[in-house]
């Protein structure tokens, strides 16, 4: 069921923050065009996985490997990873005063796509995506995330994704803070504005977004490890029953019997 030539392959990834081990051996393989979801209780390391994949400096990888299309991701700077096609929609996007959305995105676009679109050419491209995502055009001249509401920030992350059209989009709780209409618009954006063979990794607490962005795989992370993998039905089960049955099965610590690894 998984492709031999995965887009992203994570093997036994262990990550420390401030000398505390947060990821304790994550295994995950994502093929082109696949949608994966990661669920799990608060503080189990989902965002840590996202940041570690994106290359955040203070995250120390103590063992394991991450490859994207066969290349060692862990050797790359965050911007190299982005230019390779990795995109992270942040759970808490930063505010950057004085840097307008359109100027910033044009620089990012030209860098990632190795193009030199002029301000005018880029504006057209941006305008189209903004219309699709029902973002008011005044946002293009606003300073990046400054004074944006929680939901506006999330939608702005998806706008950036739509412009940069990454091979792998990691969405870290993009659904939280979005109203019901916005959630549908964002989901539609993910489904329709990314190329067919782009893959998506959705980190979420709620099954609702997975009704719109249909996952091929749902993983559960507990205490720094992926302990259970299934299809869309697993998300429904979690929504109904919570995590207690998994905690019982694998223990609070997530390390128990069956020697569980994710996906294959």
């Amino acid at each position: 069921m998984t492709t031999e030539n995965g887009l992203l392959t994570i093997k036994d990834l262990k990550v420390k923050i401030n000398d505390k081990e947060i990821l304790k051996g994550v295994n995950l393989k994502i093929g082109p065009g696949e949608v994966h979801a990661i669920m799990g209780p608060n503080g189990t390391g989902k965002s840590t996985l996202a940041y570690a994949l994106a290359g955040k400096a203070s995250y120390e990888v103590t063992s394991g490997s991450v490859t994207m299309e066969g290349e060692n991701v862990l050797d790359m700077s965050p911007d190299e990873r982005a230019r390779k096609g990795m995109f992270l929609a942040f759970q808490y996007p930063s505010e950057v005063p004085g840097v307008t959305v359109d100027n910033f995105l044009r620089v990012a676009y030209n860098t990632v796509k190795k193009k030199e679109l002029s301000i005018w050419e880029f504006r057209n491209l941006l305008k189209e995506k903004m219309e699709f995502l029902k973002i008011d055009e005044s946002f293009s001249g606003r300073y990046l995330n400054e004074g944006f509401s929680g939901g506006e920030k999330k939608r702005n992350e998806i706008l950036q994704m739509a412009v940069l059209t990454p091979k792998l989009a990691i969405l870290d709780e993009t659904d939280s803070g979005l109203d019901i209409d916005a959630l549908q618009i964002v989901a539609k954006g993910v489904n329709e504005l990314l190329p067919e063979d782009s893959s998506v990794l959705v980190i979420t607490h709620y099954q609702r977004i997975l009704r719109y962005i249909k996952p091929d795989f749902v993983h559960v992370m507990i205490n720094g490890k992926i302990v259970e993998t299934g299809g869309g039905e697993l998300a429904e089960k979690l929504e109904e029953q919570g995590y207690d049955w998994l905690k019982e099965k694998y223990g609070e610590s997530g390390k128990d019997n069956n020697n569980v690894t994710a996906n294959n």
Binding site: A54, A57, D79, R81, F87, V96, A108, L164
Partner: peptide
Amino acid sequence: SDEQIFYLQQRGVPEDEA
């Protein structure tokens, strides 16, 4: 802020440019 720099880098912008 490191957070801001990382955020911009994640969009492909090299560190010094960020």
